[in-house]
């Protein structure tokens, strides 16, 4: 087994330290080392977006980032989005619009939508579709997801 590296990073606003093998992806670190299982593995090669997180303000597939790469950086995951007694407006919009069925892709879509609205608070339907094209959903046909993101933008 490869020697484990010490990594310090900011995770959802808190400083965390962890040990990981150099070959472990950020997704593996989040799920297996830090027990944050909100990011999901759907393909492990960057094609489905179920593991989407925000790294230093940029949307990434956490399966394509190594855990050691997060040294000194800031990671936002689905677990950090809601307040103690209040959901994030995107989360509320997903619930109001019934924008999830099985829910496995939902954390990824919500993180992806957050990254979009952080940089473009009033996207058009086409801009939403273009941005979310890296996230696969097999249940909903996307209709209600796109509406939820547009609603969340309008509510802001």
């Amino acid at each position: 087994m490869a020697r484990r590296s010490h990594v310090q990073t900011t995770l959802n606003g808190e400083t965390v330290e962890f040990l990981c093998e150099p070959r472990q992806s950020l997704l593996e670190v989040l799920r297996d080392e830090l027990h944050l299982t909100g990011a999901k593995e759907g393909c492990n090669n960057g094609n489905c977006g179920a593991c989407s997180v925000i790294l230093d303000g940029r949307l990434v597939n956490s399966c394509l980032v190594l855990g050691v790469e997060t040294e000194g950086k800031s990671v936002e995951t689905i677990e950090g989005l809601a307040g103690p007694d209040k959901l994030h407006p995107i989360q509320d919009a997903f619930l109001e619009n019934a924008a999830l069925q099985c829910g496995i892709c939902t954390p990824g879509f919500i993180m992806s939508a957050k990254a979009l609205l952080d940089q473009n608070p009033n996207p058009t339907e086409h801009e939403v579709r273009y941005w979310l094209a890296g996230n696969l959903c097999r249940c909903t046909g996307y209709d209600k997801i796109v509406r939820a993101v547009l609603d969340a933008a309008a509510a802001k």
Partner: peptide
Amino acid sequence: GVDKVTGRALYGA
């Protein structure tokens, strides 16, 4: 719903 939009819902993996 809330469990599924906050990442708390536990799937098999």
